[in-house]
Amino acid sequence: MAPTRIPNATELVASGFVARRKLLSRVMSVLLFLCAALSVFVTTAIVVILVSESWEFFAQVSIIDFLTGTMWTPVFANPQFGVLPLLLATLQTAALAMMIAVPMGLLMSIYLSEYANPKVREIMKPALELLEAVPTVVYGYFALLVMTPFLQKFIPGLAGINLLVPGIILGIMILPYVVSVSEDAMRAVPNGLREGAYALGMSKWQVALRVVVPGAFSGITAAFILGMSRAVGETMVLAIAAGQNPNLTFDPREGAATITAYIVQVSLGDLPHGSLAYSTIFSTGLVLFIMTLGFNLAGFYLRKRFREAY
């Protein structure tokens, strides 16, 4: 077997090999750029679709009435389009979720980052990740068919469809995510700060609360804001367990439709595309998108800050 002769540079250029490679490299870099730009296109498309589909709606219903009205009855003979009942139910369940997720998440992430030995952490981190993978429809099943009947024994007046249980389930659902982001932030606090504090005679909890938590503050806040964003946008748990009846209430034992549950309800029904009632899913969707966009941007900048700080 004769060894293949390796062509020299002049021959490579002459045969067009170099030109071909150059062209391929160029084409691929453009292609990769287009793929990256697709993500910008998706965001633009979301905004364009939500605005254009609700354009007709806002031509007939004033934005002021929409944002301040307390009645949501789009399919009645005399329809009312006040988004407040949906918004209140959305914020109420999200607030309940935060009441569960904030204290528990804070304690768990302090424990994992400052107290737990590496072996426990090695097991806990993947376990939390696995819990993040449970489909939300399964959480909906838990809320409606397991937790609600159970809690009805203890809480008088708790309706079969209510805001309280989905709120609690939502809190537990976002817990793994909140813990993983805030624990990352705490781990990012440089060890030198901890060692300095220990050298001054601080104990573990003092280091945790006076050095690590303040040091990781922006990251921890980001974790809670991003968790809030998830709670606000969560759909299935609420569509299943919080009901589909718009209800302006401050009593979490009652059921009330959230924005997401309302969109699901209309999607399952047979309202014709193009009708005013149908276009409400896009106008309420727009409200939801703007809210979560605010949370996401705040979370992004706070996270970026803790990454830059250390």
């Binding site: 965001t43 979301i46 679709i49 606000v232 946008g233 999607s267 969707g285 992004f300």
Partner: peptide, 13 residues
């Protein structure tokens, strides 16, 4: 931001 957009918004899109 896209990572945090609620899944139902993708449905509307």
């Amino acid at each position: 931001n896209l990572a945090g957009v609620p899944s139902i918004i993708y449905g509307l899109l």
